[in-house]
Amino acid sequence: MPHHSSRAVDTTDGVKWRQPSALRALVVGAALSVLLLVGLPVGMLLDHVATMASVLRSRPDLPPAHRGFAFAAVIGYTAVFHGVAVVLVAWFTAKTWSGRRWARIALSSYLVTASVLGLLSATADTPFLIVVVVTDAIHLIMLGLLWLPPSVRSYFQSGRASFGPE
């Protein structure tokens, strides 16, 4: 018999079902992912020497007059990109927690895409490699939690969860 957490979900038929405990671990993974997604641009901003050194390694011909703009552009791009990722992770995780099948699929798609992008980032010369590796590891664990535990598969296959837009 699957082990369930104490939180119940209202389904369209009015029956309350409890989420599998693996979904609680998924929420913890999402929280850690959000923390790292927010922390990376903050770390890049605080360690401007390492960030600028990385920019200069990729663009050694960058004129000194353009370096301030390049630094701001890198921080701005990273902050916006990670901000969007935070919103997606939080929303897809919340909807997966509430039993939405579409959110489980969307979160899985996000995690695969983010992991591939993380691998691409890891192959670049980044002084923040440890953050990328840890974030990718968390994403792979979250993927496993979404699909591998029998209790989660049963939860999403049994009609307890729904495809509804809610």
Results as ranks from 00 to 15, higher is better:
66 H>Y: 09
116 V>G: 07
38 V>Y: 00
77 Y>C: 11
107 L>Q: 04
11 T>S: 15
160 R>L: 03
160 R>T: 03
87 V>H: 08
90 A>D: 04
5 S>L: 10
129 L>G: 07
110 Y>R: 06
122 A>P: 05
123 T>S: 14
8 A>T: 11
8 A>M: 15
77 Y>N: 12
35 L>K: 04
48 H>Q: 14
127 P>W: 02
95 K>E: 15
45 L>S: 11
137 A>V: 09
131 V>N: 08
147 W>V: 10
20 P>Y: 08
22 A>V: 04
122 A>Y: 05
146 L>I: 04
4 H>D: 13
84 V>P: 01
151 S>F: 02
2 P>F: 07
114 A>Y: 01
115 S>Q: 07
39 G>D: 02
133 V>H: 01
124 A>P: 00
46 L>W: 09
77 Y>P: 02
158 S>V: 01
3 H>Q: 15
16 K>M: 13
26 L>F: 01
49 V>P: 00
166 E>H: 12
108 S>P: 03
75 I>M: 10
91 W>V: 15
40 L>C: 06
25 A>K: 05
51 T>V: 05
116 V>C: 11
126 T>N: 10
33 S>I: 06
163 F>S: 14
37 L>V: 00
67 R>C: 03
7 R>T: 12
5 S>I: 03
68 G>I: 06
38 V>C: 12
57 R>W: 03
86 V>D: 07
164 G>D: 15
71 F>S: 03
15 V>D: 12
99 G>T: 01
76 G>I: 02
160 R>Q: 13
18 R>A: 13
152 V>E: 00
104 R>I: 04
82 H>E: 11
136 D>T: 09
125 D>N: 14
37 L>P: 02
14 G>D: 07
83 G>C: 11
31 A>E: 03
117 L>Q: 08
144 G>Y: 05
59 R>H: 13
